[in-house]
Design a protein around this nucleic acid. Structure first.
Length: 842
RNA sequence: GCCCGGGUGGCGGAAUGGCAGACGCUGAGGACUUAAAAUCCUCCGAGGAUUUUUCCUCAUGUGGGUUCGACUCCCACCCCGGGCACCA
């Protein structure tokens, strides 16, 4: 059986490394001693390290495990360094899969979820991660989600939550609305990659993320250095700030028509505008077309366009199409009449849904105007060149205005400022900034989520539930069919209620909240997880926040992190906290793959974490995920390679086991001046290793090379065996003790066991990270590579600190090097003390 | 199209201006064993010269450059992965 513990087969004399036994033993002791339970303590420096909370689904695989292994190393190192470490864990427990599974298996989402939570928890405990389990939270519990509702009400009061009718992405399989970012591959559902998303219009709840667009952008500066550059960049692009101007074009010859407002980043090119182009869904269109001479044809084309534009699938490759409305607009600067067109490439959702086409200075406009034979007029010239004769591509850079009335011969920057000012003065426009970022649609027509706490009263309209009546509890008894919208809407006991204001009959909101709401602030709740009066006590936040280190997948680079940042700013403006950003440092770890693709249930390539723990033990599993690749890179799972980690831990175990009886009674130390060469060598190796491992843990997070160093040290000790005669017990102890301490953050159970074998009864969890002894790391002698003209020709052994002359003398005497110098004059000598000698000969 | 990563042995990877390939996996050989497993030790980029010792050349995607010296810095290009995209 493949799941068998491979140590189980070892029947040789003497105790062998038995991870099952050791790991259980120490997990029990840690729990008894409450080692990982933390309280705020202003007398100690704090460290808040957090891994993104998991969605508990199915089995936990090595991909999950890696994330927690990385976080646990950090937590344990920081603890050994004297920090008061907060390291909590919880469950992102609401969400669609629970509901889908419930429908399929005829169970309740709560049951399914709790079963998975129990399973996930068991595996996490099996791996010995150092969480403070008392702080565990589950977002599907009323104790938690009531605060989602509380925050929602605060946002409602401040106008940050509102309802609007909006065109939404609708997945016919999920029967729910998808966020834009849940639409993937140009129009497919992120959960059903083969299902095309439809477009529907529905009344929905939104949170006004756009109110914080500017801050969300600006505060990214605070994250520089602490967050990966690419995540900052992705967020910046997502927010998509664009500075420009809005300008109104009056509609000619149509009494009562509102002017058409366009957005442009290049108001300086307005004299070159040869058309105004509207998005197919532009609200003014019906009025424009009503008595238009081109009505018949135009309406037919529009109808077709609206139909096809629903398919967002091939937006990128779609041919630019357009038609003339039969109407004209008046350029407010030149007074010129230009045709109003409709174009399928103009987006209603961005800017004003209308643009001015300046074909000479915009590549896309140029393509459109050429296709429909609209005129092209140059109004900006490059500063240096006289006059470009034929326009091949559009000239999109800044230059000097021409043919632009009073603005001619102005530089583009100047013209932009002056023209925007003029437009504002005359009242037909102004400088304006638009964002790509949209408000956050949080309505979900689903059961398994936080109920939105409002009622609809015939008399009073939308009425918020008073705080005192929170939580609005999700009813247990509902019919889940997976069809026809929200299950809550079909549950009369939930829907029918009374209005908190007038006491009359009212209908409850049946939408539930997006689960990103749950994860937007959960890390605050960890600081005060059982508070029944408030989401959290602000004084506790002051101690623990910001999060010093957040660890998770790059997949959440935009949404989860952006929403969390938004929530933080809202809470700050509510006066609950004082910081601007919740997360000081972010680390995005790579995925664990098998067969070149990420582990996932649907691909059937998962390696179960529990299975690995049974076969090799938790420590081997942890070590391997840390060793096989640097943490930020993807890791290809290899069943053969993990054997190497298993062998290594056995090697260490046997080493300590062999020496423990002789050294457990003595005190570890460096020995005295009369150290034997072997002692010197071992101490040097141990302290050199410690120096570099300390560096790898603290500054570089290169766990893989740290492990390699510890392996090297272990190999060195083996090579020096037998140690009994030439290495005194105290030195043996010193070396093995350091080895144990260095492994402790990565393989904590084994390290505890070794620590005990070495004669310590207190528990390694109380031990501090050791300091290396600089004097012991020094070499007496070094081998210096000697190059001639930059090519390696030999090596010489010299005392540390030898000067260039001494090294050169030895090099000239070296049989391998001398021939390359014979009869040649050294014209230049490069000498790096203890590192290198390079002789340049003519 | 734009923006980020990345390209090093049979494989995962190490080295961030100074001995390329640490460490691990795989493979080969040896020791131990009745035998196997486990364990311990040795070897393992390519080509050539010399044969039992060593030496030389080539080699970090490709081509240039800077430097005494480049996996590392600069320029151009190729390939792979990811993100964004009619954004006005």
């Amino acid at each position: 059986m493949a799941e068998q513990n491979i140590a189980g087969g070892v029947t040789a004399a003497g105790p062998a490394y038995d991870p099952q036994k050791i790991e259980e033993k120490w997990q029990k002791r840690w729990a008894e001693a409450r080692v990982f339970e933390t309280e705020a303590d202003p007398s100690k420096p704090k460290y808040y390290v957090l891994e993104m909370l998991p969605y508990p689904s199915g089995t936990m695989h090595m991909g999950h495990m890696r994330n927690y292994a990385i976080g646990d190393v950090v937590a344990r190192v920081k603890r050994m360094r004297g920090f008061n470490v907060l390291h909590p864990m919880g469950w992102d427990a609401f969400g669609l899969p629970a509901e889908n599974a419930a429908i399929k298996n005829n169970t309740h989402p709560r049951e399914w979820t709790n079963k998975n939570i129990a399973e996930f928890q068991r595996v996490l405990r099996r791996f010995g991660f150092s969480y403070d389990w008392r702080r565990e939270i589950s977002t599907c519990e009323p104790e938690y989600y009531r605060w989602n509702q509380w925050f929602f009400l605060r946002m409602l009061e401040r106008g940050l939550a509102y309802r609007k009718k909006s065109r939404v992405n609708w997945c016919p399989k999920c029967c729910t609305v998808l966020a834009n970012e849940q639409v993937i591959n140009g129009g497919y559902c992120w959960r059903h990659e083969d299902t095309l998303v439809e477009s529907r219009e529905i009344e929905q709840w939104f949170l006004k993320t756009t109110a914080y667009a500017e801050q969300l952008l600006d505060d990214l500066k605070e994250l520089e250095g602490g967050w990966p550059e690419r995540v900052i960049l992705m967020q910046r692009n997502w927010i998509g700030k664009s500075q420009g101007a809005k300008v109104k074009f009056a509609v000619a010859d149509l009494a009562g028509a509102e002017p058409i407002e366009v957005f442009t980043t290049r108001i300086d090119t307005i004299y070159g505008a040869t058309a105004v182009i509207l998005a197919p869904g532009h609200p003014l269109l019906p009025k424009l077309l009503k008595d238009s001479p081109a009505r018949g044809e135009a309406e037919a084309k529009l109808g077709k366009m609206l139909q096809t534009s629903v398919k967002t699938e091939d937006l990128a490759t779609m041919e630019k199409e357009g038609f003339f409305t039969g109407r004209y607009a008046v350029n407010p600067f030149s007074g010129e009449k230009i045709p109003i067109w409709v174009g399928n490439f103009v987006l209603m959702e961005y800017g004003t849904g209308a643009i001015m086409a300046v074909p000479a200075h915009d590549q896309r406009d140029l393509g459109f105007c050429r296709k429909y034979a609209l005129p092209v007029r140059v109004v900006v010239q490059p500063k240096e060149v006289e006059s470009p004769k034929a326009v091949e591509g559009a000239f999109t850079e800044y230059g000097v205005s021409v043919n632009s009335g009073p603005y001619s011969s102005m530089e583009s920057e100047t013209a932009i400022a002056k023209m925007a000012a003029f437009a504002e003065q005359k009242g037909f426009g102004r400088a304006e900034t638009v964002f790509r970022l949209k408000d956050w649609g949080i309505s979900r027509q689903r059961y398994w989520g936080t109920p939105i706490p409002v009622v609809y009263c015939e008399k009073d309209g939308i009425v918020p539930i008073p705080d005192s009546e929170l939580p609005v509890v999700l009813p247990d008894k509902v019919k889940l069919t997976g069809e026809g919208g929200s299950p809550l809407a079909a549950t009369p006991e939930f829907v029918n209620t009374t209005c908190p204001k007038c006491g009359g009959p009212a209908r409850r909101e049946t939408d539930t909240m997006d689960t990103f709401v749950d994860s937007s602030w959960y890390f605050y709740r960890y600081c005060d997880p059982r508070n029944e009066k408030r989401p959290y006590d602000s004084t506790k936040i002051v101690y623990w926040f910001q999060i010093d280190q957040y660890i998770g997948g790059i997949t959440h680079a935009i949404l989860h992190l952006l929403y969390s940042r938004f929530w933080c700013k809202v809470m700050r403006d509510l006066g609950l906290i004082t910081h601007n950003e919740p997360i000081a440092r972010l680390f995005t770890q790579g995925m664990v793959q098998k067969g070149g693709v990420a582990m996932s249930k649907s691909r059937g390539n998962v390696v179960g974490a529990e299975e690995m723990a049974q076969k090799y033990g938790a420590d081997t599993g942890r070590l391997y995920t840390l060793f096989a690749a640097p943490p930020e890179k993807d890791l290809e799972w290899s069943e053969e390679s993990i054997e190497g980690s298993w062998r290594f831990l056995n090697r260490v175990y046997r080493l300590v086991e062999r020496h423990a009886p002789a050294i457990k009674g003595v005190k570890g130390g460096n020995g005295d001046a009369a150290a034997s060469p072997k002692e010197k060598l071992l101490l040097r190796k141990a302290h050199q290793t410690l120096r570099r491992v300390t560096q790898d843990f603290e500054t570089r997070w290169h766990f893989n090379s740290a492990i390699a160093l510890v392996m090297e040290m272990t190999n060195e000790i083996y090579l020096q065996e037998p140690l009994e005669k030439e290495v005194r017990p105290e030195v043996r102890k010193e070396v093995l003790e350091l080895l144990t301490l260095m492994l402790a953050p990565m393989t904590p159970h084994l390290a505890e066991e070794l620590w005990e074998m070495l004669g310590y009864s207190g528990g390694l969890w109380k031990a501090s990270w050791p300091a290396f002894d600089e004097a012991l790391t020094r070499e007496d002698e070094v081998e210096i590579p000697v190059q001639v003209n930059g090519r390696l020709r030999g090596k010489v052994k010299v005392a540390v600190g030898a000067n260039a002359d001494e090294v050169e003398k030895l090099a000239r005497a070296d049989a391998a090097i001398a021939p390359h110098l014979a009869g040649k004059a050294v014209v230049k000598r490069i000498f790096v003390p203890d590192k290198l000698l390079n002789l340049v000969v003519a």
